[in-house]
């Protein structure tokens, strides 16, 4: 058995988990609430890009559909906060949790009602193309997933390290009152964080749709991404990506080595182990260097 194939497909899956986990962490850091609809956001992003670009629907060029999907999801995230989530400002966290679970249900069945419950594939320009490195055959999609994830992670890193907006988001997440006092419009910033979570969801959705079929319940893999975020230490951006990669890598090896049924437990078993031995996660928030 050649493990390199397992590693590559595991990394590609892990990137998608990592991106969804990134969405969890972004919203959690900025608003101290967990957006349980992040997985469904990803599914929605995937369905929107399929709707825009597939031959049997609108048939827009793939290269136009991708930025359009990202913009639509950003606007959606922004207004979801502005019109719905913000009304719970100051309520207990559990209220936001229930609200986002409900939003997830609405998205799941709303998408099903509009586009049907059949699994669908995204028609990309590079469908069926392969990249060969020695004995490893890498699907073009898998390579693209890994590269785009790395690029997005790098862009986010630079955004949070250097840009005024990125610093304002971090400041607002640490102390809202103090943030007001250095001139940060906190509520507006929170809406922008939701918009950013929408962007990340759109990118992860497009990547996921390019390498597998999408149906309305695809968003449920957000639970795996949640485990990834916990493993990474809920609040660390690099932790989210690495947590996603860990789960992505564990899955194919568990499926290969363990009997069916047990292998699906592997991601959660790892999450439990992390919670027992490193309750703050692998990349705890209070570290010397943080993003």
């Amino acid at each position: 058995m050649d493990y390199s194939q397992l590693i590559v497909s595991g990394l590609a899956n892990g990137c998608v988990y990592g991106l969804i986990a990134l969405g969890f962490v972004l919203v959690y850091k900025a608003t101290e609430a967990v957006n349980f609809a992040q997985g469904d956001f990803m599914m929605l992003g995937a369905c929107i890009v399929i709707w825009l670009t597939n031959g049997d629907s609108l048939g827009i060029s793939f290269w136009l559909a991708v930025p359009l999907t990202i913009v639509i999801m950003a606007v959606l995230g922004y207004f979801l906060d502005l019109l719905v989530v913000r009304r719970l400002f100051g309520q207990p966290q559990i209220a936001v949790v229930i609200l986002t679970i409900a939003i997830g249900f609405i998205l799941r069945f709303g998408v099903g009602a509009i586009w049907g419950h059949e699994p669908r594939l995204l028609e990309t320009p590079f469908v069926g193309k392969n990249l060969q490195f020695g004995s490893v055959v890498l699907g073009f999609e898998e390579g693209a997933v890994i590269i785009v994830t790395l690029a997005l992670a790098l862009a986010l890193y630079v955004f949070f390290k250097h840009s005024k907006l990125g610093k304002a988001m971090q400041a607002a997440s640490q102390n809202q009152l103090a943030a007001y006092y250095v001139g940060i419009p906190v509520k507006n910033i929170q809406s922008l964080v939701w918009a950013l979570a929408g962007v990340v969801a759109a990118v992860s959705g497009i990547l996921f749709a390019s390498k597998g079929a999408i149906d309305p319940s695809t968003g449920l893999l957000g639970i795996k991404a949640f485990a990834a975020a916990v493993i990474g230490g809920f609040g660390s951006l690099p932790g989210a990506i690495i947590g996603g990669l860990i789960i992505g890598l564990v899955e194919p090896f568990a499926a290969y080595a363990l009997p069916a049924g047990y292998s699906q437990l592997a991601p959660y078993a790892i999450m439990l182990l992390v919670l027992i031995f490193r309750p703050a996660g692998l990349f705890a928030q209070m570290q010397k260097k943080k993003v």
Partner: peptide
């Protein structure tokens, strides 16, 4: 959030800093 840009800065009785910075 526009008050500091006018040139009014403030401290708080109970200290509001960015603790993890």
């Amino acid at each position: 959030d526009q008050i500091p840009t006018l040139g009014i800065a403030r401290t708080f009785q109970n200290i509001e800093l960015f603790e993890q910075s």
